[in-house]
Deep mutational scan, measured.
Amino acid sequence: MIVFVRFNSSHGFPVEVDSDTSIFQLKEVVAKRQGVPADQLRVIFAGKELRNDWTVQNCDLDQQSIVHIVQRPWRKGQEMNATGGDDPRNAAGGCEREPQSLTRVDLSSSVLPGDSVGLAVILHTDSRKDSPPAGSPAGRSIYNSFYVYCKGPCQRVQPGKLRVQCSTCRQATLTLTQGPSCWDDVLIPNRMSGECQSPHCPGTSAEFFFKCGAHPTSDKETSVALHLIATNSRNITCITCTDVRSPVLVFQCNSRHVICLDCFHLYCVTRLNDRQFVHDPQLGYSLPCVAGCPNSLIKELHHFRILGEEQYNRYQQYGAEECVLQMGGVLCPRPGCGAGLLPEPDQRKVTCEGGNGLGCGFAFCRECKEAYHEGECSAVFEASGTTTQAYRVDERAAEQARWEAASKETIKKTTKPCPRCHVPVEKNGGCMHMKCPQPQCRLEWCWNCGCEWNRVCMGDHWFDV
């Protein structure tokens, strides 16, 4: 396979590697080409510095992935760790964990309700045991953590790749202090920090972006993250068709209702045909949960890209028209025109101005929308079919299609509260000796007794199943 190397943020060049090629071997190839010592090179990928003893497969490097290699003399205490030698983080029983690669970060837990604080980093599902597709590297999971809308060759929703760059020099040479644990960490600028490894760059702020994971991409090709779309790892039924499908869209209502993408497309087109989208002054033209839940309008309007190009163009047109109407304007009634106009409040005669090729020149009556006339309008008909009709959803289907309910059931079956801080902690095999993952707590306690870890627990039921 081919990976592209950008040395000291210059133009990239291809390097041929195998899945079992080590990072140090990659350094040696680059060092020979650039005429520099291999031990002064640092390989940066997806916000993480890659260790010498890791392989291309370990690092989730795919065909035509772009890695950054910078030349920086080692500072005291760094060289041993980078070589894969006596790194205290690798000691058996050590409590410190390697910062998780962005290629394996899962933010789907952050669609849980606000009262489930902490689960994004504490609760991990076991539903990723799908067998890898044919042709994928051994052991590589097909679980997708992110979804994007690819405006490039795909023109559809695709699995996405999370990447990070330095907000100062805009190069992907920043190593994160810690990985993101929720969508806010990724979507809110300057929320996460790190250290830029580019020479002479003092940058410390992280800037995240997404790429389409279905095809090789260049540095400049980015895609918009659709953070309401998630892999259906909890096997929730769709609120409309009641099938279990994946991926799904999880509405931001209190129940976190789930809808499959085909039904979401149908829901949007139906509402669009009836012009029953909601115009929100802050958000724009949007839709609420299909069950009509309060405070559930979709905030990231790129989710409506699921409509496809033709329907999305209609959505944008109707949204612009609705904006004009909300501002007190009118639409030209001549067939084939429909231009938005903003006449004076007491102006009865409205002319669709033909300047700049935008208007048709038609003069019409503001009251009856017919060709302009003197005197009273002959008839004014009330528009028919403008009443909002509820999208029919079966109550039982709505009850079963809740992301929140599956989460709470998982928590109930696989977790116990920490005796000190009461945060839910998952036990997935292993011994009875637990350690609270909350940095402010870190209590060592017994899963069996529910009390602080002691010699009695150690001698009596340390390794009970």
Rank of each mutant, 00 (worst) to 15 (best):
T410C: 10
N144V: 04
P417W: 13
V324N: 05
G338T: 08
T55E: 04
Q64R: 15
V186F: 00
E221C: 08
A138V: 12
C377F: 02
V250W: 01
G375L: 06
G359V: 08
D130T: 11
D262Y: 04
C436V: 01
S167Q: 09
V30H: 00
V244T: 07
C169Q: 00
G84A: 13
R396L: 11
S286R: 02
R396T: 11
G135R: 12
G77E: 11
D274W: 03
Q440H: 15
E96S: 11
E426D: 12
L123H: 15
V164M: 13
G194Q: 03
H257G: 00
E309W: 07
E16R: 08
S198M: 08
T231K: 11
E426H: 12
L26K: 01
C201R: 00
A406M: 14
G135F: 10
R72T: 14
V380T: 08
C323H: 15
A225D: 02
D184R: 06
T177W: 08
C441K: 01
T237Y: 05
V350M: 08
S255F: 09
E367F: 09
D185V: 01
K416G: 07
V5H: 03
I69W: 00
C431L: 09
V350I: 14
A401P: 02
G361I: 03
L176Y: 02
C238I: 01
V43Y: 00
T55C: 06
N428Q: 15
F251G: 01
P88R: 09
V30G: 00
N190C: 08
P153Y: 08
E96C: 09
K412V: 11
C260L: 00
A371Q: 13
A138E: 13
Q438A: 04
L443M: 08
I239G: 02
F463I: 04
G336A: 07
R234T: 05
I411Y: 10
N448K: 06
E376L: 09
L123Y: 14
L119W: 10
S296N: 02
H124W: 04
Q347N: 11
V269A: 04
D87R: 09
V350G: 03
C59G: 02
R75E: 14
H461Q: 02
A397H: 09
L297F: 06
Q78S: 13
P343G: 07
R402Q: 10
P199M: 07
C196P: 01
A371S: 10
L283F: 13
R256W: 02
E409M: 09
